[in-house]
Amino acid sequence: MSNIKYTEDHEYIRVDGDIATVGITDFAQSQLGDVVFVELPEVGASFEQGEDAAVVESVKAASEIYAPVSGEIVEVNTALEDEPTGVNSDPMGNGWFMKIKLSKASELDELMDEDAYKALVASQS
């Protein structure tokens, strides 16, 4: 069963077993504006929690995507390289960035659940 967690940097982590699908939230895409470029990590690369893993650029600016949890990249959404606007149109679905195989599952406990994240967005809107 899947379970969604959020970071303070407006990334979401959809966990299914030991695989976490990472993307940015609808609030994040609305703040970024039109996405024109996405740089994804290499499959097989490993990241510690909080390291820069990907880049998303809108017409306004470049933003780093941090690895919300430690682990190895097992898949990236190469469709975004040709259609970066997928991040805007379907951030929680087809606009995902990467899948990470969790190496420290306990890190998930530090992340926000949906209610906590909604409260964060409300405080920043």
Binding site: G33, D34, V36, S58, V59, K60
Partner: peptide, 12 residues
């Protein structure tokens, strides 16, 4: 105003 609801791309 940096952008309106139309968005930077749409405004451009």
């Amino acid at each position: 105003p940096v952008s309106y609801p139309l968005g930077v791309l749409g405004e451009h």
